[in-house]
């Protein structure tokens, strides 16, 4: 579904050139859940934004569904770290925002919106304003807004990192259920090993500055997975330990590269 070849990206900053990504080669299969993990500043958000068509690569290219990505596409949806909801729109109208922007028929997508709200447990809140909802519920709304596009690829940029620990786990389990139900290809950027192990088929570990693909770790634990006690505690522990090792042994950024 996604093919990334020889991808590099540098930024021109005030203090000189910053190399965010270097030579990334990566394929994401149809329906696969890929987690991208790395220290802060390793360029994982940049990678996601290049796949989304929000940023151009300096070198190399990204193909989604066989076509090179030049700008944002309607079958690729994005969920951000913050819910980014319009505060004056009801939950339902926030979910329908992409429909309006794409100039689709609103009436044909209303039912879909209701189904998504039901799937995320928000049925009773369709007419509420975002500020009346908790942070976790707001992030669910933004997930619905992404899914209304019926995306082939769902790109998620640390979507749970602004939430409290319990809500994060709850939403991660819910995301797993939704992914199992819809089979959408997901690229999920996170710095949480726990989330990566719960959700991903494979985990791409990036090294810091410049971001390079350090290792691809396959997580072969049967779904549905869960936090806490389950039948695969050993596998979970092994995968977590491996990811820990990879992240901790990562070289600190060279002094010259720091801004």
């Amino acid at each position: 579904m996604i093919k990334i070849a020889g991808l590099s990206r540098t930024f021109q900053g005030k203090s000189g050139t910053v190399e965010a990504l270097r030579g990334i080669d990566l394929d994401v299969g149809n329906g696969e859940f890929l987690a991208v993990i790395g220290r802060s500043g390793c360029g994982k958000s940049t990678l996601l934004r290049i796949i989304a068509g929000l940023i151009r690569p300096s070198q190399g290219e990204v193909l989604v569904g066989g076509e090179p990505v030049g700008r944002p596409r309607r079958d690729v949806a994005m969920v951000f770290q913050r819910p980014a909801l319009l505060p004056w729109r009801s939950v339902r109208n926030n979910v329908l925002l992409p429909v309006e922007i794409f100039r689709w028929q609103r009436s044909q997508h209303r039912e879909h919106a209701e189904r998504l709200l039901e799937m995320t447990g928000l049925s009773g809140f369709a007419d509420r304003l975002p500020h009346e909802l908790s942070g976790g519920m707001q992030q669910r709304v933004s997930l619905c807004r992404a899914l209304i596009q019926r995306p082939k690829v769902l790109l998620m940029d640390e979507p749970f990192s602004a939430l409290d620990a319990l809500t994060r786990e709850e939403l991660a389990v819910e995301l797993q259920r939704i992914h199992m139900e819809l089979g959408t290809t997901v690229v999920f950027v996170t710095h949480s090993i726990q989330e990566a192990v719960l959700l991903a088929d494979r985990v791409a570990v990036l090294s810091a500055r410049p971001g390079r693909l350090r290792r691809l770790v396959g997580i072969d634990i049967p779904r549905p997975r869960s936090f806490g006690h389950n039948a695969h505690l050993e596998d979970v522990a092994a995968a977590s330990a491996e990811l820990h090792q990879l992240l901790l042994s990562d070289h600190m950024p060279e002094p010259s590269a720091a801004p």
């Binding site: 951000f80 319009l86 922007i101």
Partner: peptide
């Protein structure tokens, strides 16, 4: 805010759409 700008960008919203809706 930046997150709303980026949202509009990711939806390929036109200048007018972003102006009127956001």
């Amino acid at each position: 805010p930046n997150d709303l700008r980026e949202l509009a960008h990711s939806l390929s919203s036109s200048w007018w759409q972003t102006f009127l809706k956001v």
